[in-house]
């Protein structure tokens, strides 16, 4: 079967879709923090709050969807999978320049493009108490 893993198979996808970045958490997050954060993000997305629709990664902002959040929570509940993601989430979310244009995602899944739903209000996360700041 051709694979359509929620975690991409090329490097850029792999970093962009890393569950820690999707949830806006660092690799040392506790299990409870992951559940709490995931539940909160799902709620925010359900309420169509713009501040939840994208997230920063080392390769630029990416679009956040409920499916990505659910997949991220499921990945991080599995200890061995979590360990793998911890390695790929070592970079600070905005430490690297944006992805080169020629590295197109191989998978042709249609998802909201990063930036399409970019937050028009950059401080929303802080204002909503989602994170202490970045």
């Amino acid at each position: 079967m051709s694979e359509a893993s929620p975690v991409g198979t090329n490097a850029i996808d792999r970093i962009r879709d890393n569950p820690f970045y999707v949830l806006g958490l660092r690799p040392d997050a506790t299990r409870q923090a992951i559940e709490r954060q995931g539940t909160k993000l799902l709620g925010m997305l359900e309420l169509e709050l713009k501040s939840a629709t994208s997230y920063p990664t080392p390769v630029g902002r990416a679009a956040r969807t409920p499916e990505k959040v659910r997949a991220a929570m499921a990945e991080l509940r599995e200890p061995s999978r979590r360990l793998e993601h911890e390695i790929w989430a070592r970079l600070e979310p905005e430490a690297m320049p944006a992805a080169p244009r020629d590295v197109a995602p191989i998978d042709d899944e249609i998802a909201p493009r990063a930036g399409q739903a970019a937050d028009p209000w950059p401080d929303a996360f802080v204002a909503l108490g989602w994170r202490a700041g970045r």
Binding site: M1, S2, A4, P66, A71, A74, D108, E109
Partner: peptide
Amino acid sequence: RTVGVALADDGVRVYFARGAPLPAKRTFT
């Protein structure tokens, strides 16, 4: 169980792999 779309070459495009958390929604071209 894995769910996908059967392709004309007898292959399968996987939309949701076994174990995927539900609910789920995916779109492919």
